[in-house]
Amino acid sequence: MGTLTLLKSQGLSHWKWLLGKWFALFLPIFVVTAALFLLAGLLLNNLDDFGVFNWGSLFTMFLVYIGYYMIFINIVLLISSRTKKSGISLVVSLSVWIIACLAAPKAASNIAESKHPYPTRQEFAANVLNDKKEGLDGHNPWSKEAKLLEQEVLKEYGVDSLHQLPFNFDGYRMQKGEEHEAQVYFKHYNYLKDQYSKQSKVYRGLAAISPYLPARFLSMAVAHTDYATHWDFADAAESYRIATQEFLNNNFAENSAFGEWSYQADADTWKDLPVFEYDPPELKSILSRNSSNMGILGIWLLASFGLLLFNVKTI
């Protein structure tokens, strides 16, 4: 309604006007967000069975969201100062929101998938099976690889029959087969990880049009609900599996005679069974792993501030 001209006639500088508008938008959002985060922190901290709660993580997440909101405040102010009618300003702001938060993530997901597709479940299973076949099957003493291993071991120990070995060869062969399989799984899961890290690059590229993407990835990472944390856990579980198999096979190899398939370990054996221990990644390592996301969010923050300041001179 032309109040801006009126304000200007009072000798109000652009800077002060901008600062006032910016804080008028930011302060209520900041207060509400801070109050909600504080409330959430107090609640979660006092839940007995909540699990891992960390004020540092909550504060980091708070910072991420505050940064994210600042970016949107900057964009909205920028649009508002450039348009003549409030209605149009609203529609343009809305379009920015649709593009950044609804369309871009979906488009990113489509592009990432068509560029770096995952294998189908059946392909994946078939590839694993093929690679397994290439090597030693610990449960098949008649295969070529098993015979080869037999010759090798006999030669190494300088004996001419498996019975003369100081350990049960069946257990030894099973362990070797296990090691081969573990390698196969490692290779194929690594391929998935590889595809995913390539997909991540697509997401990072499209973050140029959407601050939503880095904010989302960061908050998932801090909350331990992102893909990287899942892999971290899956890797720990896999190495636990490998350790358990090794323990069982070695126990069988060391304590039983060749051909003694009815061997049973005594009760004390199980005390030595490796225990699964898992520590979720620390906040520090999460942040360093997500430095690129933080960087992109930082660039958005700086760039949107910069544009706003640059723009305010020309109102």
């Binding site: 649709i98 993530p105 998938e113 479940r121």
Partner: peptide, 23 residues
């Protein structure tokens, strides 16, 4: 179940249904 990266599932697909229903 199909093997898909969970991020893909999270964001969903930009298909005609999305355009018609959301946009």
């Amino acid at each position: 179940t199909e093997m898909t990266s969970p991020v893909q599932l999270l964001f969903g697909s930009f298909d005609l249904a999305f355009v018609i229903i959301y946009l």
